[in-house]
Design a protein around this nucleic acid. Structure first.
Lengths: 329, 329
DNA sequence: TTGAAAGCGGTACCAA
DNA sequence: TTGGTACCGCTTTCAA
């Protein structure tokens, strides 16, 4: 059987109340008693049942994290940051993968909400209305999405696109393609917005392909339309799509970057491992996670949230081997 | 505020007991009352607090999952399988990443154990003694590790190595290198064992390199020693190491597979995406996860576990572009 | 078929 | 400084 507070109380010859105090408000207990209780607790290897505690304090010491798809190498980075920061603050993290299913997402949020102090929703797929509903019931922080006044951590997508376009136009590219991610993705909309502005400002020409699934196969499928568009460079919604492009170009014998330059977004670990290595816009994945937890903890301390409820983080271009000057023919 | 069973009871004009029954043992409630309760529950968007329920039933409907490092692309596959199977059985999954830290692993298991019905520990790093201790206190299933009689799901590592060696020797290779993973890894020990036997049976020669970190950089570091060993083929502990090998070979201008064949282990999604695509021993990652949950659920139903407590799953060789005949000079 | 009451493992208040 | 008691949200006897 699991050891409870009563077992410790009996072993130490005190009441459960005293055990509770000795462990969570030591200054209220006589030093001698405190020590006795602590020894008993240690001997019995006691640790309080957080769920039971949460029932009365309203605080479980647990955070919930919901992500759409752990298979997308972008998310593990965020998860790492969140876990690290949460652990520093002595909170455990419960993680749920929704498998890109908005309905499952709603169910999981509902289930999790009861057992945690607050939730971090990473790139949530559910509707803004649903999100607003949850936000009124439970402390909530969004990552990579903005909905009303819900606390959120985002990255500067337009700024990233600006850097990407500056890089390409400096190399001499004038005709650029974009392979779009899901229409429902907030990040995709932001990236398109920034891209159009940057391309227009540079007086270059933009060909928009897609949307495609933000996966390897999406990139494979987009490769031929990209070539048909007669561009000298292509920017993908994310790195995974870019890898699909590279693969298909390779299969068709198209040299990268000699014949076409390829640029990704996210800087997943993989981007540096493939050949040619992928030029990409790096996002601060771990920092995003940490910032999300910081916002959530602040929200828990001060539920009315007079403090900052928004964070926007910068991006940085990682120039690698997949981009170069356009062909000179 | 969150809606509780009392709110539903009040709305439906019945007692909390009746609400409880109407939702979890419908046959005990008159049809008319049952409907009234259900409508009220739906209107108020009520869902029971699983932690509170767990306090009394001893069943939370939650499973805990502990993995060493989500950044290793091997684990998300397993996690997917576990989540899918758990969801079918109406269980939520709480996932903790230990960041490869055995001490953190112990802490997390202890914290999680109180809030879940049982735990799946994926490739646990803690000592066998500690594992045995936990196993007596809480329902536990191990993935990729065998310790005493603790229920476990493993894959046939020696069998996978046999397939790999058969493939290489059939191509004509006689001198093969192995880049080893961590000495503490149960899987690595099993793979080495199978490999030595298979190489000996084929009358070939084996050069053992490492151990190295099971990461990209580990593979990069191992590449030069592999070449120095004068082999015509190399098998890596896992795909990530193999990718590091490919990268370094490429940088040194060594053609794969013309000059040396490279073979991985795991079949992470990435293996098919790189160029040249990676021949590798595929493990049933999702099935492992599902099987783990199955074992755990069986254990919960029948704690004495008269049933099967072990599952070993098969492996399958994925022949791709990174292996070919040895150079003919 | 339904309700009242006890209790799961804790914490918090009040009184001693 | 300590113990008794009530209660968090829910389930489960036991009676009615």
């Amino acid at each position: 059987m699991v050891v409870t507070i009563k077992d410790v109380a009996r072993a130490a010859g005190v009441s459960p109340s005293t055990v509770c105090r000795a462990l969570s408000a030591p200054e209220l207990v006589r030093a001698e008693t405190r020590e006795r209780v602590r020894r008993s607790a240690a001997e019995l290897d006691y640790s309080p049942n957080r769920a039971a505690r949460g029932l009365i304090t309203g605080r479980t010491g647990n955070l919930g994290l919901v992500v759409p798809d752990l298979g997308n190498p972008f998310f593990p980075g965020v998860v790492k940051g969140i876990q690290a920061r949460a652990r520093e603050a002595d909170h455990a993290v419960f993680l749920a993968d929704t498998d890109e299913d908005p309905a499952a997402e709603v169910r999981l949020v509902r289930t999790l909400a009861k057992q945690v102090d607050g939730l971090v929703l990473c790139s949530p797929r559910m509707s803004g209305t649903e999100l607003r509903g949850f936000a009124t019931q439970t402390p909530l922080v969004l990552l990579n999405r903005r909905v009303g006044r819900i606390p959120a951590v985002t990255v500067d997508n337009p700024g990233g696109m600006r850097q990407a376009v500056t890089h390409l136009t400096a190399l001499g590219h004038r005709r650029i393609a974009y392979v779009a991610g899901p229409r429902t993705s907030w990040s995709n909309r932001e990236r398109v917005r920034g891209l159009r502005a940057a391309v227009a400002a540079a007086g270059a020409h933009l060909a928009e392909i897609g949307p495609v699934q933000p996966q390897f196969d999406g990139g494979v499928a987009a490769a031929d339309p990209v070539l048909a568009a007669g561009v000298t460079a292509v920017i993908a919604y994310n790195d995974v799509i870019a890898l699909g492009l590279l693969s298909r170009f390779n299969a068709r014998g198209i040299a990268v970057p000699a014949e076409i330059s390829v640029l990704g977004f996210d800087d997943i670990a993989l981007a540096a491992m493939v050949h040619p290595s992928l030029t990409t816009v790096g996002l601060p994945m771990e920092s995003s996670g940490r910032a999300g937890v910081d916002l959530l903890l602040a929200l828990l301390r001060d539920p009315e949230g007079a403090g900052a409820t928004r964070r926007e983080l910068g991006t940085h271009l990682m120039v690698r081997a997949s981009t170069g000057p356009p062909p000179t023919d």
